[in-house]
Design a protein around this nucleic acid. Sequence first.
DNA 1: CGGCATCCGCTAAGATACTG
DNA 2: CAGTATCTTAGCGGATGCCG
Lengths: 119, 119
Amino acid sequence: MKFSEAPISCPMDGLLRVISGPWTTFILWRLSTHGTLRFGELKRLVPGVSSRLLTDRLRKLEDAGIVNRDYKPTIPPEVSYALSPRGQELREVLKHLSDLAIKWDLGQAKHGDEAVASQ
Amino acid sequence: MKFSEAPISCPMDGLLRVISGPWTTFILWRLSTHGTLRFGELKRLVPGVSSRLLTDRLRKLEDAGIVNRDYKPTIPPEVSYALSPRGQELREVLKHLSDLAIKWDLGQAKHGDEAVASQ
DNA sequence: CGGCATCCGCTAAGATACTG
DNA sequence: CAGTATCTTAGCGGATGCCG
């Protein structure tokens, strides 16, 4: 894919912006390994994230069609999230990215995190 | 997008952080399509970027081993950049990302936010 | 020419409190 | 439970100026 004369516009940038936000890859990883998760469960699985940020990230992922949001107006309300087909596709590509990152060993946060890497 | 410091992280986050900075993908594409470029040439090929940002992005890409920097202490100095083998690998993966983005047509680059900019 | 240093403004991230 | 509202803070990005 050539950029040639297209000065400042690339769909990939929008996608990158969505997935590169803080916690985002973590959230995606959790959803990919745990399947469908409720908001509270997800929050517990992503230690340290605030409701505000989690909501924000999920909203953006949803807008991009990467995750599906299922809202049941029961009492108490029940909202669950899961990767969409797009999310699955994205996961495949991200795995390649992750493989590169691991191979290169960029020295970022090497703490125990098979994270997205292993799955 | 800022990543302060996630308690747990994965190597991919570091890589994503590097490549998702403003102008970064644009710079990578310029280097991939034009080959080796001097600082000034690159700056001219990325309209609107400041020296400070361009330097910053190139430094991070260099630190990640994605681009090679060649410095000749002539007068005037001559500094050129080119994709490293890692950069070529990365480009392959980014192409898949780009393909997804195009297929999904996320429709960013709207509201004149310079699209390429992200964070 | 190819930077780095500095100041400065903006926005995103964090914490906290509150609600249907 | 699953958010929203608000305030504060911190870091990024822009502009400018200087140097080898």
